[in-house]
């Protein structure tokens, strides 16, 4: 075991895993995190705590993780290289290890231009792939980036993101291969709506044998309304929402039910895709739907390993 985390144990034992996103609040209330933890703890194996998601300042990911851990929920610490240089990243990794956090997701982060402090100076000292490599080195070699020794263990299950829907499509699998080579133990993908494209990408992933070197969790975003579907289709870079999905939402008598149905259909299809080891549900501001989706997808109760 690299980290001994619940997520690692489940994935290594071949269980189809479920993770979800629990974004911290734009404020100091620990209750917000705890409420999300309560909602999601029985239906998920680990919860991602986002790191200033979409470049909007929120409670720090690390404190959100600690709040979850205190209530017995396993967190995944999301970290972006947008806001921290190599010193800050490494010190936060040490701190997270000391606080008992065992999963980390290494990300570039949305550009600061999108957030609520668009005039901020972006850091981008190292990129997400270099970050993965750095954490792996800290864990496996007990070395800082500069080669100095680290005292104590840095037991992390290292995650990375993959977006099969961004361009250039042919290069996406090469980029995944680089992340795997850098040390990504698990991958959480961008929300999947365009199933044919995702299946095509997964074939390329298998052709390179990457599915055997890392655990791929397919991302899912439950859609609440046709407005949300349209917004994601037209405004969110790196997301591919086919017109049929928007049409289905537009024609639905009860859009939320249709959203759940679309999500469940996707899970059924994803279960059949070779090399998919789980799902990652990003129900932004709709966390209470997750348990129902997991239940109706036949993924309850969550296994204990």
């Amino acid at each position: 075991m690299k980290s001994g985390s619940n997520l690692e144990r489940l994935l290594e034992s071949g269980q189809f895993s479920v993770t979800a996103e629990a974004g911290p609040p734009k404020g100091t209330s620990s209750k917000v995190v705890q409420r999300k933890g309560e909602l999601l703890k029985l239906c998920c194996d680990a919860l991602n705590v986002t790191d200033n998601q979409t470049a909007i300042v929120r409670m720090s990911s690390l404190s959100g993780c600690v709040l979850l851990k205190e209530m017995g929920v396993e967190p995944v610490l999301q970290m972006v290289v947008r806001d921290r240089n190599r010193l800050a990243l490494q010190s936060d990794i040490l701190g997270a290890a000391a606080l008992g956090i065992r999963n980390v997701l290494c990300l570039s982060g949305d550009h600061q231009k999108f957030g609520n402090h668009p005039t901020a100076k972006g850091v981008y000292d190292i990129d997400s792939i270099q970050f993965i490599q750095m954490v792996k080195n800290m864990r496996d070699e007990h070395k800082f980036l500069n080669g100095e020794d680290i005292s104590g263990d840095v037991p992390f299950f290292i995650g990375a993101a993959a977006n099969p829907f961004a361009d250039p499509f042919e290069f996406r699998v090469i980029r995944l291969a680089k992340k795997v080579a850098a040390g990504a133990d698990f991958i959480q993908t961008q929300g999947v709506f365009d199933m044919p494209k995702f299946i095509e990408w997964m074939k390329m992933v298998r052709d390179r044998g990457l599915d055997e070197k890392t655990h791929i969790l397919a991302g899912l975003i439950p859609i609440k309304s046709v407005g949300m579907a349209r917004y994601m289709r037209n405004n969110v870079s790196g997301l591919s929402v086919p017109k049929e999905i928007v049409d289905r939402m537009a024609d639905a008598r009860e859009p939320k039910e249709e959203g759940v149905k679309i999500c469940l259909e996707s899970i059924e299809q994803l279960k059949e895709v070779d090399g998919i080891h789980g799902i990652h549900i990003m129900a932004v501001a709709w966390e209470d739907i997750v348990s129902r989706i997991v239940e109706e997808a036949g993924l309850m109760p969550r296994p204990v390993v």
Partner: peptide
Amino acid sequence: SKQLLNGPCGGSMNGKCEISKDVDC
């Protein structure tokens, strides 16, 4: 826009950067 040395990030679409349709990736 992110000074990535191992790019492109997941925001590259149709040859453009996520920050603006006027900026090439």
